[in-house]
Design a protein around this nucleic acid. Sequence first.
DNA 1: CAGTGGTCTAGACCACAAG
DNA 2: TTGTGGTCTAGACCACTGG
Lengths: 233, 233
Amino acid sequence: MTQPVFNNWQAVQEEVVRRIHGRVWNQGDLIPNEADLAKEFGCARATVNRALQSLADSGLLDRKRKAGTRVAMFPVRKATLEIPVIRKEITDKGHTYGYAQISRKRAAAPPPIAVKMALQRGTKMLHLVCIHTADLKPYVVEERWINPDAVPAIESVDFSQLSPNEWLVKNIPYSAGDITFSAISADKHVADLLQCRIGEGLFVIDRTTRRDAQAITSVRLVFAPGYQMNTTL
Amino acid sequence: MTQPVFNNWQAVQEEVVRRIHGRVWNQGDLIPNEADLAKEFGCARATVNRALQSLADSGLLDRKRKAGTRVAMFPVRKATLEIPVIRKEITDKGHTYGYAQISRKRAAAPPPIAVKMALQRGTKMLHLVCIHTADLKPYVVEERWINPDAVPAIESVDFSQLSPNEWLVKNIPYSAGDITFSAISADKHVADLLQCRIGEGLFVIDRTTRRDAQAITSVRLVFAPGYQMNTTL
DNA sequence: CAGTGGTCTAGACCACAAG
DNA sequence: TTGTGGTCTAGACCACTGG
C-alpha cells in the first residue's frame, strides 16, 4: 500500500475538494490549519497555502486569520465572464465584422447617465450611436457617452470607420469600472437598428469606465435577439 | 531622493500597472523577465511571479514559458460574477423572501434540455416549476429539470416549502457546470407568474450542473422586469 | 538546445482578530 | 495574548516551447 503524494498544489486542492464532496468536512466546518495539513500531505506550508487560497478565491472556502479556514456555508459560485472587444468576439466566431456610425453629437448627458458617471451638472458630453454587424446582420448597438474632459483627444477622432469601443480599448486600456447585465424590451429606435420586433426582449450590458475616480465613458450595448453570454463555473 | 521599495507583491503589481498605463510598456510589448524585474525591484523572484501571475489572471498580461511576458493586445476584461442562492440574494437586499411551488411532475426532458445534459433518450426526469418572491412581489421563476439517476434522494424530497435551488446547494454543493445569460420575451405562462406584460424583455440565466461528467440538473431562471446583475472590473 | 515561467521548499516575520 | 493565515526570501528543479 502506497501513500498518495500531494507534492503540488493542484493535487492538494483536489484532495481538499474530495474531502468536501465526501462530507469528510461539512459546510461550515473548520478544517485543519495550514501547518497541520502540510505535515499530513507531506509538503511545504506554502503549497497548502496556494491550494487553499485558490479555493477561497473560487468561493468554496472562507478563510480568516486566527479564525482558521472553514468550508463555505453558501458556496457562492463565482463565474468569470470575459468581456472581449466586439470586433474580436465576432471574428472569433468566424463571422465577418461590420461597423457603422449612426450618429454623433455633443450634448449634456441625461440624468441617469450623469449620476452614474458622477458628472458636474451640464457637462457637455460626446454622444455616439453605432452598430456592429456579423455577416451583415445587426449584432449589437453601441450607445456611448464620453467625457471629453477625461479624453481630450476624443474630439478629433473619426468614428465613422473605427468604433469607439475599439478606439477606447486601444487608447485608454486597462481602466476600471462597473458592469450591469439586464434585459430590456426593444423600443422603436432599437428595433429599427437591430431589425427586430418592437417589444422584443434584448440582452443589455451597461458599462461605466473610470480612471482614478474620473468617469471616462459610459456605454450601453444592446444585443440582437438570441445573443447569449456563456461561461463555466 | 529615496528609491521607492517594492517589497510586497501588491506594490510590484501597482508599479507594473503604472508602467502599462504610462506607456512605458505598450500593448504587445515584451516586458523584462521575472529575474530581471526582481533584481530591479529589489525583491525575490517569487514576489514578482505572484504579481505578474495575478495580472495575467485578470487579463492584462499574456505569459508563456520561454516566450516571456507580454502586455496583452486585447485587455480582455474578466468580470467575476457572484451567483448567490436566491433566498440569500433577496434577504441580503433587505426584502422578505417568499417561495411557492407551481408544479411538479415526472417527464422526459425536451430535446434542447436533453442535449445540454447529454442524457440517454427517454430518461425520465423530475420537472419542477416554482417562484421566488421579494416582499410578496414575483422575483424569479425557477424551472428545473433534475436527473433522478444522479440524485436518487430527490424523489422523496418535498419542494413545497424548500426550493430546489436551496436543497441542491445544501445537498449537492460544489459541483461544476456552465452558465448562459440571455434575454427572452415573456410568453403568457411566464407573464402570468411574474405579473408582467406578455412580450416584456426578461433577464434569463440558464445553468447546467454536473458532477464527474454526469448531468445533475438544468435550470432556467427567468427574472422579473428590471432585474440587474452587477459586478466590477 | 536554452531561456522562460511554474512550482516547491524550509524558514522566517508580520498582520490580523478571536478570546 | 496568541494562533492563524498572508507574505517574503533564497535557492532549487522542472516543464514547456521558441529558435
